[in-house]
Design a protein around this nucleic acid. Structure first.
Lengths: 356, 356
DNA sequence: GTCCAAAACCTAAACGATTAGGTAGCCTGG
DNA sequence: CCAGGCTACCTAATCGTTTAGGTTTTGGAC
């Protein structure tokens, strides 16, 4: 296409400069070029640009939980923080049919390196090998709502303060006098699991409650089945069910409905992750609100900062290894939104409208 | 990196062939190459590959409704249909903070052409200029849950049979004897609007009902505000509210809750688009189920077929203009899922578990 | 009228892969 | 022993940009 633009009689150099807005081009030449380019319908070839410029103009978000409610807010936050800069955001889903696949993770990381990404935001703890691989290509990684792998403890991460959040959850449950807790939770691949579990366990101990932690795959159907099997085996209901995240909550609520269990009459319910419908389901749900959008925004800003530092260091002839500073590890406080499923406000079948 | 791989003493040609699995390379050379490549941590540069091969190995999905429930299912269907081939799926969101921005559409189309995409699936009716632009670069487009612009009527599209679906909705409402209908609907940019409105209007006429069509921006907050303003002005409730899609339903339900309106006692409610929580909200919702995943799968398959036809035609020296055939325009029947919000099964506050 | 710097422009070499077109060596059949 | 056809390999051009390093032109300042 460029040789077509050379129909202006000007050289490649001038055309390139004119189009990209650099200097060394007279105003008339520039206009001439822009005009012919428009007439000819010239659109640059990105592959060629990236090849020449050594790429690095998009950042990737790795996720395995597109169906989790917080995902949309998180993305909104990331997009928002990155819109002013002109990086492109691409999302890489490493789950097939909603369940995480490690081979997909490998393939995804491979592809991100092939595309010479400027940076990566990961919503899950990557494998040590993949983390190392990205590092060896000088691609900065920010973990969001997940921790870096043990082999890379200094990597940046932005998460909810899950430990204290879980203490809050536990404290509220204890206020209701509930002593028999069941925590339905996803696998440790999503590393928020650790702090959530620890907080809840500590809280149970502190309040003299028993807690059972029940692990399920990270999707609604597995949540349903796992919980059903557990209740079957246990023979009786716990006092309260804590759903570890949105898909598991969905599974649990479906089971509760199918079994005719009354919430919070027979079983109180508290869940992680606020979402759009939480105040509309029956009963309105008491949930932990994560402020996902802010987390996304923070993560994106952190990544941008690191990438810029990297670019600057390189310009000054330094190494382009990303530098991670301790303040890049951030925790965002969460908030407990109290509705009815925990037993507050008179439970499920009240005739008055539920609070938002 | 490639010259590093030349540390095997073999030429670029041999290395390239060895890595890409082509023939003309002895088994030992191939092993030698693979071994060194692995040792050196060689990862190909995608920009260079795309430049040389004239790209065309990813397809894009253009959407402005990531928060709409059907989006996830749609994507799942698309991913599913495209996984066997090794095209990459990238999604391009042309909405900022949930509302559609035409300039983003332009920029997105520009970028897709820059990347020389193999094909595009669009969940909204593109502007005539953008459609023409894509066509002029021989990039096939399949519209999904939306129609092609009037200037390009022969383009492929896969949609729900919205007209008949709306007749079904209307018929069911009529069975309840409701005569005063309110249709809360999104703007015509999402072209399913036309058939849905037409179906509902025809149905109202057929059953001797009055229908008011109320247009709102396509997000929950606008839906809430628009509906609130309308009810204010009208001074009384209609018999039934039909929510045109998921975000509008969300807005409507929030309003209903805030106003203390009883559903279906004071106002019956039917909504478009099945979603995960529809049977769990209060009351369980009667919705039109779109089979989004199948629509996605169908669209992806159609696109794949067209791209393959294109590649074949080009190989035979023909034109690479995509050929669209009439059977590429497909309609998928929908299904009405009857729960309680329409007035069936005894309404909202029943103590028995709601049907799934 | 010189000299010099700045502005405007050009030539040609990259970037990292693929591949058309060629060559050398070996085998096989006649 | 040679033609012919393999196989395994190589050289070098090519994709569409950007840009380092020149060259020419222009316009003052002296």
């Amino acid at each position: 296409m460029r040789d077509v633009s050379r129909a202006t009689g000007l050289s490649m150099f001038t055309v390139s400069r004119a189009l990209s807005g650099g200097d060394g081009v007279s105003t008339e030449s520039r206009e001439q070029v822009l005009k012919t380019a428009r007439e000819l319908g010239y659109i640059p070839n990105r592959a060629a640009q990236e090849l020449r410029r050594a790429s690095r103009d998009s950042v990737a978000v790795i996720t395995a939980s597109t169906s989790n409610s917080y995902y949309l807010d998180l993305m909104a936050g990331i997009q928002h923080a990155l819109r002013p800069s002109n990086w492109t955001v691409v999302v890489g889903d490493v789950a097939v049919d909603g369940i995480y696949d490690p081979r997909l993770e490998d393939r995804m990381v491979q592809r991100l390196i092939e595309s010479r990404m400027a940076g990566v935001i990961s919503t899950l703890t990557l494998t040590p090998e993949n983390t190392r691989l990205l590092a060896s290509w000088d691609i900065p990684v920010v973990f969001v709502d997940s921790s870096p792998p043990a082999s890379a403890r200094d990597f940046p991460s932005v998460t909810t303060d899950n430990y204290n959040a879980s203490l809050m959850v536990g404290a509220h449950i204890a206020e209701h006098g509930l002593k028999d807790w069941l925590f339905l939770v996803y696998p440790p691949k999503w590393s928020t699991r650790f702090d959530r579990e620890r907080g809840l366990r500590d809280s149970a101990k502190r309040h003299g409650a028993r807690i059972v932690v029940l692990e399920s795959e990270n999707d609604a159907v597995s949540g349903y089945d796992t919980l059903a099997a557990h209740l079957e085996a246990a023979g009786k209901l716990p006092d309260v069910l804590v759903a570890g995240n949105n898909p598991l909550l969905l599974g649990a609520l479906n089971l509760v409905r199918d079994r005719g269990i009354k919430v919070p009459g027979d079983l109180a319910l508290v869940a992680y992750d606020e979402f759009a419908w939480s105040s509309l389901v029956n009963p309105p749900l008491t949930v932990l609100d994560e402020r996902s959008e802010e987390i996304g925004r923070l993560a994106a800003r952190t990544l941008a900062e690191i990438i810029e530092g990297q670019a600057e260091a390189e310009k000054r002839g330094g190494s382009k290894t990303p530098v991670y500073r301790p303040e890049h590890q951030q925790q965002v406080p969460a908030q407990l939104v109290i509705r009815r499923s925990c037993g507050c406000h008179g439970g499920s079948f009240a005739a008055t409208p539920a609070p938002a």
